[in-house]
Design a protein around this nucleic acid. Structure first.
Lengths: 248, 248
DNA sequence: CTAGGTTATTGACTGTTAGTCCATAACCTT
DNA sequence: AAGGTTATGGACTAACAGTCAATAACCTAG
């Protein structure tokens, strides 16, 4: 103990290396579907060791804010944060060499913007297709991959689609969003049936105004919940007392 | 923008709050099944503001180690780390008030010990049943809940059972492990069939030596992989070109 | 006004996965 | 040998997912 006030625990062995405070930054992998492709928000360094390369939005953690507050504050400089339908913590990177300027821990977040939101971006900021990424700073490419992997996994067993789809959408539009996000073909028929059965989406009762497509007007749907929930369907080996559905 | 100096890197505006380095600690939620119950490893504070209450193993991050190295090093003081069959990052907590001694970020890990490993513990350290937890320090109870939630989810859609079960086990033993970890009844017949179909476990060809139980000798199994893998079965809306099985 | 094009929707059919139950197997002890 | 105990496998059902084709509801061209 002694009189030092800067110790997480009471009893710290002194060694060659000390538990000294470390710089900490926040980063965000912000994803949106547009033009049938998944995009990530990046901004371009104009100086420093990574000048010219593209980086995830973020910046240093301030002393009086939580990580969540920090990422929201810093994202606000790049995109309208009111457009973010979802924001969750992803992981914390701690490689000693991840930033050549010195040791910086980085906590990454995953943010999702619905496909119908149009953001006004600063001059140094752009959406990039995930299949045509530019040269990226530090470990940001790797962090981006983590974010995409997390999104794809959660699309399968949660209702996270609400954060990528428009508020109201047709089965075709939803299919296009999932297809772009998952990176492979998706059947609109099957997708709609699965999400209705899981009670993630419901018909609004309205239809697309006829004449726009030349075909039959499509029924419109919306997600029933706009916060993340895990599909219980998916929970293999569920408790025996719970009936799987209300039927029979 | 323009000449504004509020940029995440290179150039930091000085304000009321500064991006000053912050203390960082590592914590571990180490879980093991024993006596038909899930247990978590805790040690008891003998001084400081949380004296008497129980804490997760961990401690301050040193300046020359990654978070993963740090948690391994600190866990070694409480348990034989060679027993850990799995260790993964869980989340980073950043509440300003999580530790009354001052601001400390904490990155939590989830560690798993197979049921047949017997650890020799220090005097201040004990396994606690998760349904009979003592008073816990700071936000450690909440972090423990996160770890348990993560374990239970991953037991459903990954082969993470390998990290809780003994190397070789019978269907009954596996059922007991899953039942304790999941916290509800599990059918041994169904469990074995599901894990065999997913190709997570396979028969060793051996049987339990007769005479120990009075009944028919049980066949023994082992997990085929001892690193985590996601069940592809579970991936709803999988790519259409992939056949689901080899049949047909 | 009708024929044919386009998109959407529904239902039928199939195969896979999971949950339950019971008969049988393989050991034990008395 | 009978009866107890634990393990195993098969039968059955239900739920879930994937595919396809028929039909519906709009359009435009002629």
């Amino acid at each position: 103990m002694s009189t030092s006030t800067r110790r997480p625990h009471d009893d710290i062995r002194q060694g060659a290396t000390k538990p000294q405070p470390v710089d900490h930054e926040v980063l965000a992998v912000v994803l949106q579907v547009a033009d049938a492709a998944l995009h990530v928000l990046l901004w371009q360094h104009d100086r420093g060791p990574a000048a010219g390369s593209w980086a995830l939005p973020g910046g240093p953690l301030m002393s009086d804010e939580t990580l969540g507050q920090s990422v929201a504050r810093q994202l606000a400089q790049k995109v309208d944060v009111r457009h973010l339908a979802h924001l969750e913590q992803l992981e914390t990177r701690s490689d000693l060499e991840r930033d050549p300027r010195g040791r910086v821990l980085a906590t990454a977040y995953l943010g999702l913007v619905p496909a119908d939101q149009r953001s006004i971006l600063p001059a140094d900021t752009r959406w990039h297709q995930i299949h045509a990424l530019p040269e990226m700073a530090f470990d940001h490419a790797s962090i981006t991959s983590s974010g995409i992997r997390r999104l794809r996994a959660k699309l399968s067993y949660t209702n996270l689609g609400f954060a990528l789809a428009p508020t109201v959408f047709t089965a075709s539009e939803l299919q296009a969003v999932y297809q772009a996000a998952l990176g492979h073909e998706v059947s609109a028929t099957n997708l709609k049936r699965i999400l209705v059965r899981r009670e993630q989406i419901a018909e609004t009762g309205t239809h697309v105004s006829p004449g726009r497509s030349g075909g039959r007007p499509a029924a419109e749907y919306r997600f029933r919940k706009r916060h993340i929930e895990v599909t219980d369907q998916f929970a293999v080996l569920r408790p025996p007392e719970l009936p799987r559905t209300l039927s029979g």
